[in-house]
Amino acid sequence: METSLTIAEVAERTGLTAHTLRYYERIGLIAAVSRAPGGQRRYAGADMEWLAFLLRLRETGMPIQGMQAFARLRSQGDASVGQRREMLEEHLAEVQARVAALQQSMQALSLKIDHYRAVEKTRKCPPSSGTTPKGKTSNDEHTTGPGPRRQPALRARPRKAS
């Protein structure tokens, strides 16, 4: 006999609220959940597996509309396997692009942290002191040399007489 879970138990295990679980059922993300004789929802193991997958889709940024489209295809059975695969391949490509962008941002942050550590070391600033020696400023260039050069003042061009 398969064990079934109440909505409260599912909420605790998934981190979703009971309200969200009912909402997911109402909008078609979750097929109608079986009910106990008293009318309470009872989630089976297969329901939990599907919820876990939905949470993965949500965690990776798939919008609700995309999740609904996927759920509709899933309800069609094996006839929609190719469409579901294509949909997941497209989503995976989007996730990979976001991961690559995040990796670039992480690299930029690491470089900036390294820069600030080098500035602290060169100027003998205590880490996280929040101050720089008098008369010194820390610029945001990737050098430990002198600060940025001043640009010459822009001069207005003389107007031609008309």
Rank of each mutant, 00 (worst) to 15 (best):
M67A: 06
E49K: 12
R84N: 10
G66W: 00
L102E: 11
K121G: 09
T60P: 07
M62C: 13
S75P: 00
P63S: 06
A46Y: 05
R117Y: 08
E86Q: 14
A46E: 13
M106R: 14
G66P: 00
A71I: 00
R98H: 09
L88G: 05
L73P: 01
H115F: 08
F53Y: 09
Q83L: 06
L88N: 04
R56G: 12
R72C: 09
R85M: 14
P63W: 05
V95L: 03
V99G: 03
M48H: 00
W50R: 06
R98F: 00
R74V: 01
L102Q: 14
D114P: 01
A52R: 15
Q104F: 03
Q65Y: 03
Q103C: 01
Q96T: 08
E49H: 13
Q65W: 02
A46K: 08
A93Q: 12
H115S: 13
V95F: 02
A69V: 08
L54E: 00
L111V: 04
R117L: 11
L51F: 08
Q83I: 01
E90L: 08
H91V: 08
L54P: 03
R74C: 06
D78A: 15
S75V: 01
H115P: 00
Q103N: 06
H115K: 10
E120R: 04
L57A: 15
M87K: 04
R84D: 00
A93F: 02
L111I: 03
G45F: 11
A69E: 15
L111A: 14
L109Y: 07
M62P: 04
Q68F: 04
H91C: 07
I64R: 00
G82P: 02
A79K: 05
I64E: 07
D78C: 02
A100H: 05
R117P: 02
L109K: 07
M106Y: 10
G77C: 04
L57E: 08
R98C: 06
D114E: 15
A108R: 15
A97H: 10
Q76M: 12
L102A: 13
L55P: 03
A52G: 11
E90K: 13
L102S: 13
M62V: 12
L88W: 01
L51M: 12
L92S: 12
L51E: 05
A79I: 04
A71S: 14
R72E: 12
P63C: 06
I64C: 11
A100W: 03
E86V: 07
T60R: 07
E59D: 11
A52P: 04
L92Q: 15
R72W: 03
M62L: 15
T122K: 15
G66V: 06
E89C: 14
L111Y: 04
T122W: 02
M106W: 06
A46F: 05
H91T: 03
A71V: 06
A97C: 11
M62I: 07
L51N: 09
V99M: 14
A52K: 13
M62E: 09
A46G: 05
D47G: 07
P63Y: 00
F53A: 09
